[in-house]
């Protein structure tokens, strides 16, 4: 879901940089207030953890393995605002060091995976789990948090791709950036993420949370809050 350079027009990537910047500023302010001077090592370690969680290959039912984006579980473990910054730092490092995602698309990628996904996942989890502190409902909430979070983020990316032919076409109608219209980009992104990657994301989210609740429940942010 990392958008490369060249697919988004400046009319799209500049506002998305702006939107991400607003979330970074608010998140930084909130965490600074909450953690005082400790927020620097806290966010650095949270980012390192977020990076590593994406690299683990997790065995999933059916005999195969998969790995997750992890923004959902990070939002549940650390809180959505910490997730915004931690996942953003990861996406910036991935874009610069590994070429995963474009430099111009950092704002868009951060908006989709570090803003939309953590907040959607976190609120889906809170909403579905209700007062449950374990059991089927609690783990169903974790699964849905990962699944819906990733699916919504993929729809956001599909929307960003899909509007390109409308806002950036040549005089002859030839697309200048992402060539697929909304009617193709959104369903293509949504279907593959809802049917494949989202399910893996949901399973990984539920699996990791299950372990944490059983062994390290005091570390889970989403269950600490009233």
């Amino acid at each position: 879901m990392h958008i490369p350079d060249g697919y988004l027009s400046p009319q799209t990537f500049v506002p998305l940089y702006g939107a991400s910047f607003v979330f970074w500023a608010v998140a930084l302010k909130k965490l600074k207030k909450e953690l005082s001077a400790k927020y620097i090592p806290y966010l650095a370690m949270a980012a390192a953890f977020s990076f590593l969680i994406m690299m683990f290959n997790v065995p999933i039912p059916g005999g195969t393995t998969g790995h997750a984006v992890g923004a959902g579980i990070i939002a549940i473990l650390l809180g959505p605002w910490a997730a915004v910054l931690a996942v953003s730092v990861v996406l910036i490092i991935q874009a610069i060091v590994f070429g995963d995602g474009g430099i111009t698309a950092i704002g868009a990628n951060c908006f989709n995976m570090a803003v939309v996904m953590p907040f959607v996942s976190y609120w889906v989890f809170k909403l579905v789990k209700g007062n449950a502190k374990g059991g089927a409902r609690f783990y169903a909430a974790a699964f849905l948090a990962g699944w819906i979070g990733l699916s919504v983020a993929s729809v956001a990316a599909g929307f960003e791709f899909g509007i390109q032919p409308m806002i950036a076409s040549g005089p002859d109608g030839k697309p200048l950036y992402a060539p697929y219209p909304l009617s193709i980009a959104v369903p293509a992104m949504a279907i593959e993420h809802m049917l494949v990657f989202g399910i893996v994301e949901g399973m990984v989210t539920a699996l990791i949370l299950k372990y944490f609740v059983k062994h390290e429940s005091e570390l889970v942010y989403a269950t600490k809050e009233a």
């Binding site: 001077a37 400790k38 620097i40 090592p41 806290y42 650095a44 370690m45 949270a46 390192a48 953890f49 590593l52 969680i53 683990f56 290959n57 997790v58 065995p59 473990l77 699996l207 990791i208 299950k210 372990y211 944490f212 062994h215 390290e216 570390l219």
Partner: peptide, 22 residues
């Protein structure tokens, strides 16, 4: 379970390192 345990271990380790670094 083993993978989830390793992820939890790394999480705990990052938290301890956060304290050390601070």
């Amino acid at each position: 379970n083993w993978v989830a345990g390793r992820i939890a271990f790394i999480f705990r380790k990052t938290q301890l390192k956060c304290d050390d670094v601070f």
